[in-house]
Write a protein that binds this DNA or RNA. Sequence first.
DNA 1: CGACCTGTTGATTTAGATCAACTTACGTGG
DNA 2: CCACGTAAGTTGATCTAAATCAACAGGTCG
Lengths: 261, 261
Amino acid sequence: MSHITDPSAGRGARTTSCRACALREKTCFEDMTEQELAFMERFKVGEMVVEAGTTVLLQGSTSPQLFTVLQGLGLRYTTLPNGNRQVLNFAFPGDFIGLQSAVMGELCHSFEASTKMRLCVFDRAGFWELLRHQPRRSFAISWLAAREEHFLGDSLATVGQREAGSKIAWALLRIWQRLDELGELQSSPRGNGLRAPMPWRQQDLADALGMSLVHTNKTLARLRAKDQADWRRGWLTLPDPEALAKEYEITMSEFQKRPLI
Amino acid sequence: MSHITDPSAGRGARTTSCRACALREKTCFEDMTEQELAFMERFKVGEMVVEAGTTVLLQGSTSPQLFTVLQGLGLRYTTLPNGNRQVLNFAFPGDFIGLQSAVMGELCHSFEASTKMRLCVFDRAGFWELLRHQPRRSFAISWLAAREEHFLGDSLATVGQREAGSKIAWALLRIWQRLDELGELQSSPRGNGLRAPMPWRQQDLADALGMSLVHTNKTLARLRAKDQADWRRGWLTLPDPEALAKEYEITMSEFQKRPLI
DNA sequence: CGACCTGTTGATTTAGATCAACTTACGTGG
DNA sequence: CCACGTAAGTTGATCTAAATCAACAGGTCG
């Protein structure tokens, strides 16, 4: 199901060069210096396109690759010995995937594409070189790792300390915010307001929040009835995100430009 | 209640030099090159000794400092708008504290000393210099951040997907393992077996696992009755850690030497 | 058309929260 | 040395949020 394009194969015409990368245009990312660009292009091994449902990284295996999401949405999860699944986070364009595997030997989580995805592929061996020769890039890596740590801490606090309605609202707001940063919110086809693509299943959200599927469903229905959030058929609508956040005592961390790997 | 020693004050006789740092002797840490040592000594600003109960970092403030734990135990937590507290992790000697604050502007968690602690203090401004000039050190930072991310993911999976007995067992095993690595397990004063210092309160454990205090207490009592774990008056005894892990389907990540900042 | 996946809804059960009373340990000061 | 105050730990009774069970509906695809 997967398809890798190697830039050294053929004339490399099929692989976007970092310079031409559409992600760089987004306002949510920091600018890159000419030197950084040149370096990243050497570090880049190719591109990979996967269909929705593909397992890109499998817990327990040892992947020699690192990725940056170019297009599409995915999710990262662990499977416990008791069979339960914990979704660790949802992945968006610009996310750097696999830092942990570069550090620990073995993968302790899986990564799955929730839509068709395009991934930028880097070689793990090049990672060390990256940090050695590019202090700015290396700082970017640490920055992203710290940010990820922050997000996970936030998830932990939500899963551990909020009740159902608040959990759901928190998750929807976070997804909304991330898509907003990326400029992926669209105006609804019917009438006013914005909507966000949200391709995940209710089961995914349930597994992210430590809730049962049924309870997740009923809580979503309650939010819909109160006109606070409407997530159906792959699209999420939040009539008033600020009011929602206030109602459920949710403080979103403010926007910050972030580096792109 | 806190007491800072500045190496540039007096003759700096009161501050341990990195070369003489007792932590470096521990087998769980990677060796440092002479060059790294020299650099870290410049980066180090001083030492701080705090009494048990001191809040070292406060959520919402902006701390100009980074720490490495030299002695003692602590914990990191967030307070939610609803008043609940989530303990994010427990801190042990060798842990590097404050990477997030170095990256995000504002602290999004607090740090508290659970025993008397000795902390190695670094200046935040020096952090950027660190990454710029010391590729090896910079790799160490990324390594530690990735490890922290891994631990948090593990916590999230536990809080989200395990039931009470398993949660408690998981937490006790992890603390046990971390102290074991540091060589802090001692033989019990009465009779055979090992014991670990565990200065936290039941409330801390409850807040780490997203459980109520009462339920935590009752679950601990059940484990004690089954001779699986005994935590009382600041000491933890695990008669058979492997059996405990097996019983509750817990896989501990294997030991790996880690860098020291 | 039937198989399958995702979502929906009501009925029932239960793990864990909450409430409340009490014990134990450890000061501190008279 | 004892009385008192406070913080942590313990235990039983009660309540409830959320899990589980079960049946069904809608959409999609071969």
